[in-house]
Design a protein around this nucleic acid. Structure first.
Length: 243
DNA sequence: TATAATGTTTGAAC
DNA sequence: AGTTCAAACATTAT
């Protein structure tokens, strides 16, 4: 479900509730649900994979993790983690993490680290990468402090597009190539957004889940890589190993 | 039916 | 005290 672009779509879909007051709350979440009652939604925001419902005094942070789902004006049979009812509809959240953040939301997040944000700052990402030369690039791309919103699919697609082996060491990758990776992390995320919006994301995957490399027709390597030990799909012919 | 998968936090073990 | 790592959580298609 998640990855940054999917959360942007969620934000778009709930705009009907902006400015609306919460009239009922339920669900199996252990948070103090009553806090939400009678509160008016000031705005919806996202930071990477975080979906943020901002109220006057606090923000509700929703993270869909790996299996999270949401339904708008619809319900599943299973109990919701949190169901937020407005007078014009409801938002139902399932198998996700929900938490309150107190105070000004801007104090909680560095918006410039979010690849989907207008405030995204590629230069900062490059500086952060330079500080961790020993890290594998496959791990670095998943670091939310550097590339908030990038998940495993985006990681695989970006590395294939720029021709970099996932087990390359950050410090061994030429600066020009690092810049390309940073640029593509944002660029691909926006393509992901439009494809996902139109339900055609999957058919545009060039690496993730693929068996053969379309460029050279060699079989992909499928391997759990990095300290994070996440699935990587790559072509040893088209993706250079900087080590 | 067992397994694996778009993710993160936690707390024990070093 | 800082790092590392396995476990926990949760869902569903194959």
């Amino acid at each position: 479900m998640p990855e940054g672009p999917s959360i942007i779509l969620l934000k778009e879909e709930v705009q009907q509730f902006k400015g609306k007051e919460v009239v009922a709350v339920s669900g199996n979440s252990k948070i103090e649900q009553s806090r939400l009652l009678n509160q008016k939604v000031i705005s919806f925001k996202t930071w990477g994979k975080h979906f943020l419902i901002c109220f006057k005094e606090f923000t509700l942070k929703v993270h869909l993790l790996l299996f999270g789902k949401y339904l708008i004006n619809k319900k599943k049979e299973q109990a919701a983690r949190l169901s937020i009812v407005f007078d014009n509809g409801e938002l139902n959240l399932y198998s996700c993490s929900v938490k309150f953040l107190d105070g000004n939301i801007n104090a909680c997040y560095d918006w410039s680290a979010d690849v989907m944000s207008d405030a995204w700052d590629p230069k900062k990402a490059i500086i952060k990468l330079k500080k961790t030369p020993a890290k594998f690039i496959c791990d670095a791309l998943l670091e939310q402090d550097i590339f908030a919103g990038v998940g495993n699919i985006i990681k695989n697609e970006v590395l294939y597009r720029v021709g970099v082996h996932p087990e390359s060491k950050v410090g061994k990758i030429p600066v020009a190539k690092i810049k390309e990776i940073v640029k593509e992390a944002r660029n691909y995320s926006f393509e992901f957004l439009e494809w996902k919006r139109n339900f055609v994301l999957r058919k545009h995957w060039l690496a993730h889940g693929q068996k053969m490399c379309l460029r050279c027709n060699l079989p992909f390597v499928r391997k759990y890589t990095g300290v994070k030990n996440r699935r990587s799909f790559f072509c040893i012919n088209c993706q250079f190993l900087y080590k």
